[in-house]
Computed example of a mutant assay.
Amino acid sequence: MRDPYAVLGVTRTASADDIKQAFRRLAKQYHPDVNPGRPDIELKFKEVNGAYSLLSDPDKRARFDRGEIDASGAERPDRSFRRAYAGAGAGRESGSRAGADPFGDDDPFADFFNGARKRYSAGAGSGVKAKGADVSYSVTVPFIEACLGTKRRLTLSTGKTIDINVPAGTRDQTKLRLKGQGLPGLGGAGAGDAIVEIHVDGHPFFTRKDDDIHLDVPVTLQEAVLGAAIKVPTLDGQVAVKVPQAANSGTVLRLKGKGIVNAERKVTGDFYVKLVVMLPEKPDAELAGFIEKWAKTHDYDVRRKLNQPV
């Protein structure tokens, strides 16, 4: 993955608001719904999501800036210490290279680690038993797939490829433990585990709160005044929603059971649609004239409560 700052088109000193604004602009530009049948645009959209997922998290951003993690969120090798098992290395998603030696041929710790390897090899036939080490991996999943559940293919440090289940409702930085998929043990002891940290991309429109999803939906002036039937996106596709007559900005409509399935609690969250009344983008002289004439006989105080003593 490219440098997340370059992906979003911001500098390394960009503020959190600058990063958010850049993400929203690019997400709208590259959203698959706006570019149907364009796999290249879909890849660009995923890249933008991944960059925002990293830079919108203060801890991840700081760690990336310090060089502790790479652009995908995976741990970088520690240059002051190497794993005692040759070729282990932090794993990534299928297609990445695991076990690279950051020192190359000039390794100041070669004697120490070579000794460790010799002791490891000798232990296999000396009756010594020790469970194998755990190995960490990182996988990035789009927001909707994390909400609904999905699968990801992972290449282990051993070269083995497996499919992992990402449960519905998985949150960002959730860690999955895969028993026995780490490094082999000594003297017949069990293998270690694979620890897979799931990173969930942000979404340009949906916001998650517990098991519920919240979405701001723009409506026209006529839809708000007269009422209307509109279509809104949800986790599993578009649904029809009825806008009541005389709806104000801030009116919230609840779609029961359209949120996230919580397997542990055996409940399903809801989907909340908040209406935002929008005037035409360009000034409309006819509308302005009508409102001016209408207001002369239909005055009303919308800030009355703000002026009352608390």
Rank of each mutant, 00 (worst) to 15 (best):
Q181V: 00
L183A: 09
P184H: 15
G185P: 02
G187F: 07
G187W: 06
G187V: 05
G188K: 15
A189T: 02
A189M: 07
A189Y: 05
G190A: 14
G190Q: 15
G190E: 12
G190M: 14
A191P: 01
G192V: 04
G192L: 06
V196M: 07
E197M: 10
I198Q: 04
I198D: 00
I198L: 10
V200K: 12
V200N: 07
V200H: 09
D201S: 10
D201Y: 09
D201Q: 14
G202Y: 08
T207N: 10
K209N: 05
D210R: 13
D212M: 13
I213K: 10
H214V: 02
D216G: 05
P218D: 04
V219P: 00
L221H: 02
Q222K: 12
Q222R: 15
A224F: 08
V225G: 05
V225W: 13
V225T: 08
L226P: 00
A228T: 12
A228P: 03
A229F: 05
A229P: 03
I230F: 08
V232K: 04
V232L: 06
P233A: 13
T234R: 15
T234I: 15
T234E: 07
T234V: 12
L235G: 00
D236V: 05
G237R: 15
G237P: 04
Q238W: 09
Q238P: 03
Q238N: 09
